[in-house]
Design a protein around this nucleic acid. Structure first.
Length: 433
RNA sequence: GGAGAUGUAUCGAAGUGGUUGUAACGAGACGCACUCGAAAUGCGUUUGUCGCGAAAGUGGCACGUGAGUUCGAAUCUCACCAUCUCCGCCA
């Protein structure tokens, strides 16, 4: 959620920036509503004061036995009127506040000044290329072709179990997956993160805290059982970021760096027909997520360090990639700045997103009410949150398969992975040798 | 799933309808005094949040959450949530 005060002071600037993220601010509605709320609030507080004083007075009279009942009864009936009025106004005020909150919960975070301005992903800006494209003396295949040939990825049986966008990994495929999971998990620990293991089913308020709800409900898997509603998380960012909701941390505790390997579930509404082959875009996948909590002063250093953590992982695997700054139109709902790492996939002959690192500043902290006590000012201030993928397991597997494939149809095991999968390669028949 | 109990500030815990007073008492933390320093002792400070105000200040709201009763609710009623104990069931 945005800072309401700042927004009211710089309403035009905010309107413009929100428009860059495709949110059309209804300025009149917004200002009127605010105006109505502050007027109602003042009236309401006056009435509440009146009610409190009246009640106290009655209490005093009742203690004083010499007073007659007629006087007390008269006051009581007067206070009934005040009390009714107060209740009516209280409920009016809470309706108005709920309306404003609902409107604000649908507003995205505003882009940071260094986010390039642009309509869509075509206007993202490449910041850096790292490593070099591998060369092949044959035509490299896409991962799903290799996977089916070697019988280590079974899309058909995945679909049989759960429908499209589900898959089954077998033999060397399943072992490669486990190796990648362990590798990425250990990478996050080497990079200084404390691993956490969290629920993948969470309540509605948790999804609101990180910004998935209320706006993107159709993108989320929802369960309901015994009247209890729970959502399947689309990323570990959701439960991990919410760990400190409704808490006030000490400044010394920050920064906090957590990593989490979890299942992720996405409906992928609106991406029908896109990336339908293979395991690139699945309803269910595993991912190591890195989440950081920081003070506003630490925020950007922490963010840059987070991006470096992600880069280090791809470097270890010797993969070629580029770093991209997302433009305003492509930026996620909660983010104010985002760098994507796009790995080179020779089979697809293009760069594809493998990690997305975003700084949310205080946007999520406001929604989830996460604060820290500033040592100097002694005030409680909102913390900053940021997160990035410490790689999705599936896409890392794809990158390895496509970049390490050989002319004979085998796939070499990257050096960094041999600790977890002590073989030279997966041969053309899908055997580890 | 059945039975019972509990939920109050940083922690422990009192408070079963009334101003003064958001919260007795205890611990912790912080500040000051005493001390060469420390301990001990004494005094003081210590919930959050939203208004109005340049500030001093001043007012509202919050005792698990939400509704209700009442002139007035931490206290009474109802629902929900969480925790603990016992029983049952089950990875």
């Amino acid at each position: 959620m945005l800072d309401l005060k700042k927004m009211l002071e710089n309403i035009d600037e905010y309107a413009e920036k929100l428009a860059q993220k495709k949110f059309n601010l209804d300025k009149n509605y917004f200002l009127n509503l605010n105006d109505k709320i502050s007027k109602t609030r003042i009236q309401c507080q006056d009435l509440q004061t009146q009610r409190n004083k009246g009640a106290d007075q009655i209490g005093l009279l009742m203690r004083d036995k010499s007073k007659n009942h007629a006087e007390i009864d008269k006051l009581k009936s007067e206070m009934t009127v005040v009390s009714d009025k107060t209740k009516a106004l209280e409920s009016e005020l809470s309706d108005l506040e709920a309306e404003l909150k609902d409107y604000m919960m649908h507003m995205p975070n505003i882009p940071d000044a260094k986010t390039p301005i642009g309509k869509d992903e075509d206007e993202n800006v490449v910041l850096e290329y790292v490593g070099e494209k591998p060369t092949f003396d044959f035509t490299p295949q896409e991962h799903h072709i290799l996977g089916e040939k070697m019988d280590i990825i079974d899309m058909d049986r995945g679909a049989k179990l759960s429908g499209t966008r589900f898959s089954v990994l077998k033999g060397a495929g399943a072992r490669l997956e486990m190796a990648v999971r362990n590798f990425l998990f250990d990478c996050s620990i080497e990079n200084g993160y404390t691993p956490v293991s969290v629920p993948v089913l969470v309540g509605r308020n948790i999804m609101e805290g990180t910004g998935q709800l209320p706006k993107f409900e159709e993108d989320m898997f929802r369960t309901e059982s015994n009247g209890k509603e729970l959502f399947l998380i689309p990323t570990a960012e959701v439960p991990v970021t919410n760990l400190f909701r409704e808490e006030i941390l000490q400044e010394d505790q920050l920064p906090i760096r957590y990593s989490c390997l979890s299942n992720c579930f996405r409906v992928e509404a609106g991406s029908a027909g896109k990336d339908v082959k293979g395991i690139f875009r699945q309803h269910q996948f595993d991912k190591v997520e890195m989440v950081r909590f920081a003070t506003p002063e630490q925020s950007w250093d922490e963010f840059n360090s987070l991006v470096n953590c992600a880069k280090k992982i791809l470097d270890k695997l010797n993969l070629h990639y580029r770093v991209v700054a997302l433009c305003t139109g492509d930026l996620g709902f909660s983010a104010c700045y985002c760098n994507d790492l796009e790995v080179w996939l020779p089979g697809q002959n293009r760069y594809r997103e493998i990690s997305s690192c975003s700084n949310m500043l205080d946007f999520q902290a406001r929604r989830a009410n996460m604060k820290y006590k500033n040592k100097e000012t002694k005030k409680n201030e909102y913390i900053h949150t940021m997160n990035g993928s410490g790689m999705p397991i599936g896409r890392t597997i794809i990158a390895i398969m496509e970049n390490y494939q050989q002319k004979d149809g085998s796939i070499l095991i990257p050096e960094a992975l041999k600790k977890y999968l002590p073989y030279e390669k997966i041969d053309a028949n899908g055997q580890l040798v």
